[in-house]
Design a protein around this nucleic acid. Structure first.
Lengths: 343, 343
DNA sequence: TTAAAAACGTAGACCGATCTACAAGAAAAC
DNA sequence: GTTTTCTTGTAGATCGGTCTACGTTTTTAA
C-alpha cells in the first residue's frame, strides 16, 4: 500500500534453505549445534534473499544491540566529540548507536529516555543530563546506564567525568601566574536546580578552592550566568559596570566564552590586552586562529570510549558502580595575557 | 539478573483491571468499542502500574512512531539546525526522532540505514547522503524517505534542498559588485563520485552560470578541494602559488571557509583587505564577530520542518514525489570587501 | 561390541503488542 | 413481539525473531 517492498523474514530463509526456523536462528546467532554444511546452505539462502534480521523482533526476547545516547544540546560541538568516542567503541563491539536530543528540561528528558526504554535499548549513555541523583538512579534501575559529565559515584549507574576540580585549578593557576588577582567565574544557573554533581557546581567549587589556595579568598567572584552565547555576553556588561571590574574570567564553558569574546569585540576592547578569557571544553571553534581561545581540553573522545566500555560491562552483568575521572589539560592560546593592572 | 526491574506489560494491566488484553490495547490506541467505564478502569490500572507500552512490540504489527535521521557529520553545526526543525515538527505530530551518524562512506551509510530499517522506523530523513540516485531509490523502496540537501525530484522519495543555483548567484553577484573578477570556487570532491544532484555539483554549476552571466566566463576557476577545515587551508596555499591569484573565493561551505580564514590569518594577510571569502550554510561560528563570515543562509529550521511534513505525508500514503527548493539569503558580514586590484 | 557422550536439528512456547472475528447483550426498527 | 442493528468485550492468530526441551544420529569411551 505504501509502495514499499516487503523484507524477507526468517521463515522465508528457512523455507528457501529447506531447514527449520530454529536452525536459521542458530546460524544467525552463531549458536552451538550447527553443521558446516547447514551453516553454508543457510547463509547462501540469506544472501540470495537479501535477508536482514529484524532488530525489533530480536529485541523482543534477546538483546537489541542498540545503545541510546541522550543529549541536551547537539549544537555544542564538544558533545559531538564525545559521540565520536562512543560510536567508535560501540561499533567495534557490534552495537548500533542512536542519538536522542531533548533540550526543554526534565520532563522532555524523561520522555526521551522513556522512548529509548520503550525501544528496549540495551544501554543508555546520558550526556550531562538534568535532574537530581534520584532521577538518575531511577533510570539506572530501568536499564544499564552511564552518565557522562556528572561526577560520581552514583547508585546503580556509572559515571565518567572530567576532573573539574583539577580543570578549574589549571585555569586559576594559569591566570595567577600571569599576574591576575581579580578573577571572576561564571556559574551556570538553569531552569532546574543545580545538583552538586553537575559540572557547573564542581567547576565553581574548584574555582573557589584554587582561589583560596592562591591566597585570593577575598577576590572570589562567582557570577551567576547561563552557559551560552547570550549568557557570556551579558556577563561582560555586568562585570564592566563594576567599580573595579575583574581582569580575567573563567567562563566555565566555551559557549559562554564565545559570548564574552564577542561582546568585548563589539565594545572595541582587544583581548587579551584588556581582559583575559578562559573557556572550558575545547570546542571546535576555540581553535580557529581568529578566536584562539585558551581553554581546558577534556579529551572527549577518550571519555566517550570509556563510557561505552563501562556500559557494555554493565550490560554484561557488572553491578558495582564505576566512577572515572579523566584528567583535563590546559590549552593555552591567545585569549589570556598578563594582567593589565599588574602591580 | 541485571539489577533492573521489569516493566509492566499489557497483560499485567489487563489482569489488574480485570479485562482482556485486547481491551487494554483498544484503550491504548483509542480504538472503537470501549465504554467509558472500562476506559477509566484501564487507565487507572495503567497509572497504578506505571505502564508504558513497548514501542518494539507495537512496531511489530503497526507503526513504531519513530523517525530516523541519517547524518554524515554531526559536528557541522548547520545540520544541528536542520535537526531542530525536524524534531519540532515530528514531536508535534507524535513521532520520536532518533539520529544515526555514519561518516565513513557509502558502506557505513548503508549499514546505518539498514539498522534503522531493522528497527522498523516509520520513515527516514537523509541529510546530504552519499551515493547515486539509484541508491536513494532503493532506500525509498524500503521505507518512506525524504532527502535533505540533494536536488530533486527523485523517484520514490521526496527532496528538500536549498536553491544552490540561486545561492551561488547571490555570492558571485555580491563579489562582482565589489569589483572582483578573479573569483575562485572550491568544489568538494570526496571518496565517492559526485552526483549531479549533490550540493557541491549544483553550487559549482550555479557558480559557473553566474560567472558567465557576469561576462566572466574566462575567469571561471573551479578548484577541487574538500569541504572541511584542512581542505580550505590547503586551497589557500594552492591559490597563492599562482602567478595571478584570485581575489575572492566562494568556498561552497562554511567549514572550508573557516580553513581559508585560518590560513590567511596564519600568513598574516588581513581579510577582507587582501582577499574576500564567502561561505555557505551560516553555521554558528560564522556569526562570531571575530569571524564575521559572509555566507549564505539556508533557513535550516524551515527545511527541517518541511522535510518532516513531506515525510509524514508519505508515511500516510502519498506516492507522488515532492521536490521543494528553499530560497537562500546572503548574509553579508566582514570577510568580503572591495577587490584589492580594482581597476 | 556396547554404553555414554557429543553433535545436530526440530517443535513449539514465548516476547508484548495489534488486529480480525465473533459472541452476547442492549437498543432501535418494524 | 420479533427482527435488525449497535455496542461492548473477548478469543486467538499474528508480527519475526529467541530459546528451551527433546529426539536422532554420530562419535568417543569403556
Amino acid at each position: 500500500m505504501n509502495g514499499q517492498q516487503k523484507r524477507a523474514t526468517i521463515s522465508d530463509v528457512a523455507e528457501h534453505a529447506g531447514v527449520s526456523r530454529a536452525a536459521v536462528s542458530k546460524v544467525l546467532r552463531g549458536a552451538y549445534g550447527v553443521s558446516d554444511v547447514m551453516k553454508k546452505r543457510v547463509e547462501e539462502s540469506m544472501e540470495a534473499l537479501g535477508y536482514r534480521p529484524s532488530a525489533l523482533a530480536r529485541g523482543m526476547r534477546g538483546r537489541s544491540f542498540t545503545l541510546g545516547v541522550f543529549v541536551v544540546d547537539l549544537s555544542n560541538t564538544f558533545v559531538t566529540v564525545l559521540i565520536e568516542g562512543i560510536r567508535a567503541e560501540a561499533e567495534s563491539r557490534g552495537y548500533q548507536v542512536f542519538i536522542g536530543e531533548a533540550d526543554m528540561g526534565l520532563a522532555q528528558q524523561q520522555q526521551m529516555i522513556d522512548a529509548m526504554l520503550d525501544r528496549k535499548m540495551d544501554g543508555l549513555v546520558l550526556i550531562a543530563p538534568f535532574g537530581p541523583e534520584e532521577e538518575l538512579e531511577r533510570i539506572g534501575r530501568s536499564a544499564p546506564t552511564v552518565v557522562l559529565g556528572r561526577h560520581g559515584p552514583g547508585q546503580g549507574y556509572d559515571t565518567v567525568a572530567s576532573d573539574d576540580i583539577a580543570g578549574s585549578a589549571l585555569i586559576v593557576d594559569h591566570l595567577v601566574s600571569l599576574g591576575h588577582r581579580r578573577i571572576a567565574h561564571l556559574k551556570h544557573v538553569g531552569r532546574e536546580k543545580n545538583e552538586s554533581t553537575m559540572p557547573q557546581s564542581v567547576r565553581a567549587d574548584g574555582y573557589v578552592q584554587a582561589m583560596v589556595r592562591n591566597g585570593l579568598e577575598k577576590e572570589v567572584d562567582v557570577i551567576e550566568s547561563r552557559w551560552n552565547h547570550e549568557g557570556g555576553a551579558a556577563a561582560v556588561d555586568f562585570m564592566l559596570k563594576r567599580d573595579t571590574p575583574p581582569t580575567a574570567v573563567h567562563t566555565g564553558t566555551d559557549m559562554a566564552a564565545f559570548g564574552v569574546l564577542a561582546r568585548f569585540f563589539e565594545l572595541g576592547l582587544p583581548i587579551p590586552e584588556n581582559f583575559s578569557v578562559v573557556g572550558y571544553d575545547n570546542a571546535r571553534a576555540a581553535s580557529l586562529p581568529q578566536v584562539a581561545l585558551t581553554t581546558v581540553d577534556q579529551s572527549g573522545f577518550e571519555m566517550g570510549t570509556l563510557a561505552t566500555k563501562f556500559l557494555v560491562e554493565r550490560i554484561e552483568g557488572r553491578q558495582e558502580p564505576q566512577a572515572a575521572l579523566v584528567q583535563p589539560t590546559l590549552m593555552i592560546r591567545r585569549t589570556t595575557g598578563p594582567a593589565p593592572d599588574a602591580g
